[in-house]
Design a protein around this nucleic acid. Structure first.
Lengths: 105, 105
DNA sequence: CGCTAGTATATAGATACTCGATATATTGAT
DNA sequence: ATCAATATATCGAGTATCTATATACTAGCG
């Protein structure tokens, strides 16, 4: 099983997806937090669009790469926490390794 | 001048652009060679689409990040070699640094 | 010499994605 | 009470990408 989990038809598995998956590798978090993390980590270079974020999360969930679950704590605001699935973790690892070849000269 | 050269409205400066720029940081090369390099370096994970490549190169050239020049050697096939401009080199460096934060855990 | 495969750039229609705006609702601060 | 921040979500318009197609040169083969 050398091949990536999801057939990459191309590079269109966009920056957004790659960054979100890399972010979730560090641990589960909810959508808004992902956006803030990416903005902070990217040193202001990546400005995340909230209108872009949620559709991607839904797509990734539909593809089985991440899994969302609503928190139901009393007195706390409702939020949906996302975790990488086994499939998603493999995919994120492969994707990151491929990127590293270009990033580390 | 801490700010990136080109205002990144978002992440939409796609994977394709980031990879092409990172590729050209290693030295000038022509379109087809860029596609082969990215395929090879990405370990089969990135499969580059030739129909995608050339429009992006034209766009990057129009934005002043890269500069193309036709080789005119006798007996050799015509090809357009692309080089990073000063602006493009700065942008590519910033972009790579931002990506590194996510790639190197 | 004709055939095929690989090199090399380029464009177009259909599809998919992202942007920016908008909507809703809760929490914390002044 | 009011404002800003948190938190998720959707929609139309604009943009980018995919797939297929087109052109043309080079090298290798029998």
């Amino acid at each position: 099983m050398e091949r990536p989990v999801i057939e990459p038809q191309s590079l269109a598995k966009s920056c957004n997806e790659a960054l979100i998956l890399a972010c979730l590798e560090a641990g589960p978090r909810h959508g808004y937090q992902i956006a803030l993390d990416i903005e902070a980590k990217g040193g202001g270079f990546f400005r995340f669009n909230h209108g872009t974020l949620y559709p991607i999360l839904h797509k990734l969930e539909k593809e089985g790469l991440i899994k969302g679950s609503w928190s139901d704590e009393a007195g706390a605001r409702k939020r949906k926490s996302y975790t990488l699935t086994a499939k998603g973790r493999r995919y994120a690892g492969d994707l990151r390794a491929a990127w590293r070849e270009f990033i580390e000269h």
